[in-house]
Amino acid sequence: MSTSLRPVLSPPETELSPELLRKLHELMVKGRLLEERLMQMYRQGDGYFWIGGPGEEAFNVPLGLLIEKGRGPQYDYCHFHYRQSATLLAMGADPIDSLRMMKNTATDPYTGGRNFSGHYSIREWNVVPISSPIEVQYAMAPGTAIAQKRIAGGRGITIVTGGDAGTAEGDFASCLIWSSRPANPLPVLILVTNNKWGISTHWQGQHGEKRISDRGKAFGIESKTIDGNDPEICYRELRGAMEYVRSERRPFLMEAIVSRLYGHSSASGANRVNDEADCLQGFEHRLEERGLLTRAQIEELRARFAAELQEAHRKVRQEPMPEGRTIFDHVFSDRDLVRERP
């Protein structure tokens, strides 16, 4: 599937260690169960809207593990979209906080009950506020990358993610243009998770280029399309691409072909589809075949996480909702000029 333009640092062919494979698996299970719990919360009326990434764990988990997380331009900036709970889990987020965001409680540490599920924001880890307008993150990404490029010897990079349909927005082109100017190429890892769908519009009604990664060619951007359903491939390819962006301080465009297992969002019912590959099932078969995990161990893991999430759900149900009078909080970061109106 690779459409690499010129040879890039090819990721080492070495096998990933058994520990890493088990860790990837564990986080993928956790990510999947978290999404299932969030959908359940939606169905039970503990949230107004669900959107997330079941089917993208094979890509999202390795990404989260490889990110250099921290605050400020020495670390990676994350301009994510709304399907990346599994990335956040892999970075170390506590799943109960995703439940809080789902239920829009005052205790939601990301937005205080202001935003939809999946719309994370964590300054401590350079996760910039995820927002609903499609593709705007691709317009912001060059800004953080400009700041990073200036740091002598810096290794921090900017990572931006989004879906395939959204690449029709001008902001995607902005990102390609701004990050590849000969006068100042930027350390941006430009990622597209291609689930082949907009909301209901198939890719054939969205765009004509064979691979979205081909769009990098015109800009001389190293580009590749990978199988986003295989966590081992994703880990290796992301590691290689990140290393390239970190050391060369130049952009890389990667398209990952992924599945969408529960449709677009709760707005389209969030029902399980049966005609798409399930990255988790595939990976579990492989791990069983290789003797790295047994079915019993897998079941035990699932049961444990499911119980934890159920308990977390019970807890979150009791937590307070934000008070209406807090709407004026944080309009400005120095003084609350709106509220100070006489």
Partner: peptide, 21 residues
């Protein structure tokens, strides 16, 4: 000089601001 791209300009301005610049 930036590219001739107002959305890119505002986006970069936000990105720089987020990075503390």
């Amino acid at each position: 000089n930036s590219p001739l791209d107002e959305r890119g300009i505002v986006g970069a301005s936000i990105g720089l601001g987020l990075a503390g610049c």
